[in-house]
């Protein structure tokens, strides 16, 4: 497919766009929090990719490559924007980074309805927005885009062990943020109580 694109086949490139644009959009969306910015970034990513395809060395998959471009451009955009909600994390106690929350709620509740799911999505996106760029990105790649650890390692050019530890730290931090906000895990706890 890459060869076809390099030969000038724009239809071939369109197939790549259709296959990857949703994932690229979601990387940009979750990193920036703005649908408009995410559209901008997505268009820029694919435009750049098209112009740079002749430099694509093929040592990684096209997906890993384009996710890397998307990640870099999203971070670049965040830094350029320098808005308040992309400032340094509001994590209150850096000395506990990497530790679990002190109290772990019982989250073995019953299934929840659409309204609760919507509330949880909102809460987790807000929590995600409070994380440092590096941790936010790895969670987005893993959870939102569904990349395997190997694919994440390839995309970010880090070791597998680093993927594991960085993911853990990101999750621990996110969990702490959500517990401090006080609404996310209460949804589970309240369901447990409703369940009797």
């Amino acid at each position: 497919m890459i060869g076809a694109v390099l030969s000038g086949d724009k239809d071939a490139y369109e197939k790549l766009v259709l296959e990857y644009h949703k994932s690229v959009y979601n990387i940009a969306l979750r990193m920036t929090g703005s649908p408009e910015d995410a559209c901008d970034i997505t268009q820029d990513v694919f435009f750049k990719a098209y112009r740079s395809l002749k430099h694509f060395r093929g040592s990684a998959s096209f997906g890993s490559w384009i996710y890397r471009v998307a990640s870099n451009m999203s971070i670049d955009h965040l830094r350029r924007r320098k808005r308040q909600h992309t400032a340094e994390t509001v994590y209150l106690d850096d000395s506990r980074e990497g530790e679990r929350p002190a109290e772990i709620p019982d989250v073995s509740g019953e299934p929840y309805g659409e309204l609760e799911r919507k509330e949880m999505r909102r809460a987790v996106c807000e929590g995600l927005d409070m994380l440092p760029e590096e941790q936010k990105l790895i969670l987005v790649l893993r959870e939102v885009n569904g990349l395997s650890y190997t694919e994440i390692a390839e995309t970010l050019k880090i070791e597998l062990s680093t993927v594991k530890s960085r993911l853990y730290r990101a999750r621990a931090r996110l969990a702490d943020c959500l517990l401090k906000k006080g609404n996310f895990f209460e949804t589970y706890s309240s369901n447990k109580r409703k369940g009797g």
Binding site: K10, Y13, E14, V17, L18, H21, K22, Y25, N26, L29, R30, P35, A38, C39, T42, Q43, F46, F47, R117, M120, R121, A123, V124, C125, L128, L139, E143, V144, N145, G146, R171, L174, A175, L178, F184
Partner: peptide
Amino acid sequence: MSAALRDSAEEPPEKLSEWIM
């Protein structure tokens, strides 16, 4: 938490791929 994050994936605007092309 993972389930909620996975659930946060959104559909891009319908015409985004057209704009890209």
